[in-house]
C-alpha cells in the first residue's frame, strides 16, 4: 500500500517536474517577449507621436472629414492614429510570437489562424471605416436637407440614415470575415423587410396626414417662399 502511494507520489512529482521543465521556460520566454514588446511598442508610440506631429497626413485626415468622424472639431491627428496602429501591431505580433514559443498543436493552430485572418481583418476594418465615413457623410446630408426644408425631426432622420448605413457595413464586414454569415444575412433581410413594412404602414396610417400638411404648407407658402428668393 505504502509502495503504491510512493509510486503515485513519484509519478506526480515526475509529472510536475516534466510540466515545469516543459512549460515554465517557454512561459518565461513568452512573458519576456511580451514585456519587451510592450516596452518597445510604448517607446515607438512615444517616438511616433513626437516625430510625426503636423504631418501632411493630418491634412489628409482633416480634408477627408475622417478627423471630424472620430473626434469633434477635428482633434484626431495622423500621428496618434499611426502610433496606435504601430503599437497594437507590435503587441499582436509579440503575442503570436509568445504563443509560438510553446510549440504545441493548439498554439500553432491559433497562430496560423491569426495569420490567415489578418488580411480579412484588414479588409473588414476598411469596410467598417468606409461605412462609418459614409454614414457620417449621408447623416450630415440628410440633416441639412431636412433642416433647410423645415421637415420635422431632422436629427432623427439623420440618425436613422446613419444607423442603416452602419448596419449595412457591419453586415458586409461580417461577410468578408466569414463570420456568422447566415445570421447577419438573415438579420439584414428581416430588418430591411420590417423597416420597409413599418415605413409603409407609418406613412400610410400616420405620416400621410403629416405629409399632406407639409405639402399644403409648401403650396400655401408660395408667397412667403417668393419673399425668400427675392433676397438674392
Amino acid at each position: 500500500m505504502i509502495r503504491t502511494l510512493q509510486e503515485v507520489f513519484n509519478r506526480a512529482v515526475e509529472n510536475l517536474y516534466f510540466q515545469v521543465t516543459t512549460y515554465l521556460p517557454p512561459l518565461l520566454v513568452a512573458l519576456f517577449i511580451l514585456l519587451v514588446a510592450y516596452a518597445l511598442a510604448r517607446s515607438i508610440r512615444w517616438l511616433l507621436l513626437r516625430a510625426f506631429k503636423g504631418l501632411a497626413a493630418d491634412r489628409f485626415l482633416e480634408e477627408s472629414g475622417l478627423s471630424s468622424l472620430f473626434a469633434r472639431a477635428g482633434r484626431l491627428r495622423a500621428a496618434a492614429l499611426l502610433a496606435a496602429f504601430v503599437y497594437w501591431t507590435i503587441f499582436v505580433i509579440a503575442a503570436l510570437t509568445a504563443l509560438n514559443v510553446f510549440d504545441t498543436k493548439l498554439t500553432s493552430q491559433i497562430v496560423e489562424g491569426a495569420v490567415f485572418l489578418f488580411p480579412k481583418l484588414l479588409a473588414a476594418g476598411a469596410i467598417l471605416l468606409a461605412g462609418f465615413w459614409l454614414a457620417h457623410y449621408f447623416g450630415h446630408s440628410v440633416l441639412l436637407w431636412a433642416c433647410n426644408e423645415e421637415l420635422p425631426r431632422p436629427r432623427l432622420l439623420a440618425s436613422i440614415t446613419r444607423t442603416v448605413i452602419v448596419f449595412v457595413s457591419v453586415v458586409v464586414a461580417a461577410d468578408a470575415l466569414n463570420f456568422a454569415r447566415n445570421v447577419f444575412l438573415a438579420a439584414f433581410i428581416i430588418l430591411t423587410g420590417a423597416a420597409a413594412l413599418a415605413a409603409g404602414l407609418a406613412f400610410g396610417l400616420g405620416g400621410r396626414r403629416a405629409f399632406e400638411h407639409y405639402l399644403e404648407r409648401r403650396s400655401h407658402s408660395a408667397e412667403s417662399e417668393k419673399s425668400f428668393f427675392q433676397h438674392l
Binding site: A146, C147, E150, S227
Partner: peptide
C-alpha cells in the same frame, strides 16, 4: 416692394442652432 417673413427666418435660425451646431 419686397415682402419678408421675419418670423420664418428667425425660426429657421433657431432650428439651425438646435440641429446644425455640430456642423
Amino acid at each position: 416692394p419686397v415682402e419678408v417673413n421675419l418670423d420664418r427666418m428667425k425660426t429657421a435660425f433657431r432650428n439651425g442652432c438646435d440641429q446644425l451646431h455640430e456642423i
